[in-house]
């Protein structure tokens, strides 16, 4: 039970998640991450640190990568969200970044991978990374404790080269 009087009930919000528009009641203190995982069953997005330090909860919010653990869902009425579940095509074909991660064995335990893939998809879209140094710098918000970084950089380089 809450240790303070509840001053507000849930707030209704509308979110388009992976192209599916839904109307949802959310409590003011619910993070976007918890909404995705606990209320909507979209457990592809991972909870690592829950404090914005590891990047495993990265999603695309209105087209930009953010840490969903630091977003209060109730402040995002009308927004669109893409999670790792929304990357594959309607026929199930993997997103080129997902395929590149497989091609380069860019993970070990896999826990950070959804966040890495989302962040990498955004990095390519942003168009500001051209060299391995720039990829490393612009991926620095995604921590991999297995240390798969060299293969992650290689996977991203593959997608960048194919996009040229």
């Amino acid at each position: 039970m809450p240790d303070h009087p509840i001053a507000s009930d849930t707030l209704p919000i509308e979110l388009t998640i992976n192209r599916d528009t839904r109307r949802l009641p959310v409590a003011p203190w619910t993070s976007l991450l918890d909404l995705l995982r606990e209320n909507l069953g979209l457990t592809g997005t991972k909870k690592g640190c829950d404090h914005g330090q590891c990047g495993s909860c990265a999603v695309l919010l209105d087209g930009r990568r953010v840490n969903s653990c630091l977003v209060l869902a109730a402040t995002k009425d009308g927004s669109s969200v893409t999670t790792v579940e929304g990357l594959a095509g309607p026929d199930g074909a993997l997103h080129p970044m997902q395929q590149a991660f497989i091609d380069h064995d860019a993970y070990q335990c896999g826990y950070c991978t959804p966040g890495q893939v989302i962040s990498a998809v955004a990095l390519v879209e942003e168009g500001r990374a051209h060299t391995p140094d720039e990829i490393r710098e612009q991926m620095s918000g995604n921590i991999c404790r297995c240390g798969a970084y060299p293969n992650i950089v290689a996977a991203i380089q593959q997608v960048l080269e194919n996009a040229r």
Binding site: G55, L61, R65, V66, N67, A122, L123, E126, Q138, G141
Partner: peptide, 9 residues
């Protein structure tokens, strides 16, 4: 400062 994800928000 920070990272792209944080700077975006």
């Amino acid at each position: 400062g920070a990272t792209t994800q944080l700077r975006n928000a």
